[in-house]
Amino acid sequence: MTWTLLWMLLWRHLAGIVLGALAWAVRRRGLPALEAGRAMTAAAAGGAVVLLAACSVLGAMPLWVEAPREVWSAVFGARYALPLVLGLAALIALGAVRPHRAPSAGATLAPRTWRSFLEVRWLSALLLTLVLVLVLTLAAGTASRPDEDGEYTRYVVHVGSGTLGTGIYGWHHSALPLVLLMPLGAATWWALSRIARPPLAEAEPADTAKRRRRSANVARVALGALLLHLGTILTSLANTSRLSGTFSGGDRGQFSISTPFAALSGALDVLGAVAACAGCALWVFTALTAVPAPSVSRSRRSAVPS
């Protein structure tokens, strides 16, 4: 029973870890080695994955540990904001890395900005995911209604003179994540600016390649945070969509009521899982970029017959 529950709570994270590790193993040979801030990168991204998984398990602790209802309510409610908080912390750690400054031959006359070493596809992916998060948050918030405490957490379906209701990712749950999106964006910009700011080294192509690698890591961490957050929203909406009730209509027999978007339940579940796995995979990939590339001399020695 316990193992089954753990699997239900952690399968997305485990799938993301496997996916991230596979992607890194496939691309490892083509990627230049990350030299600056290896330990910080591994700790920031890897630690975020571990904490995320731990908090998922924590959400089920009421089954085993007695605590006030408010405590577990707060823990459960934090699941929406947690990926953004962990992503923010990881971005600050990545931006704080100060690589060793190689000798510079002078100043290049090309302007360097936060976008100089970031590929367009990363920027596009970040913007697209952000738009999806905002659209879903706005839609769910608009559909939410106040509960008995006056907090916008309810989704109701009117049935004659009565209503049928369930929880939804309403304004109460989305207020903090919406606020956190701003420092997440600011931290992403800051970390990318820190990478671009120092003068280029004398070995310009090598320095440029290193900066592209570090900028890609920053983008992966930010995108991972957005995808994980998107995953929690989609999963929550999937749960909301499953609201249904059967009522007696007297002489007319029984009838069922469900949400207008009940047909999307399966798709929302799948998309939520995909987003969560992808977000986790991006963080795992980032952590693994800190693993040193295999040395050439070792591979040559192994090729020589004894």
């Binding site: 290049t108 006359l109 090309a110 302007p111």
Partner: peptide, 27 residues
């Protein structure tokens, strides 16, 4: 140096130069 790059065509019309802050830090 910048004047020489412009007059010899190595810097083209409308080409953007780094900001004062960036060039000062680099040099």
């Amino acid at each position: 140096q910048i004047s020489g790059l412009i007059t010899t065509g190595r810097l083209g019309r409308g080409e953007r130069l780094p900001s004062v802050r960036q060039l000062a830090a680099d040099l």
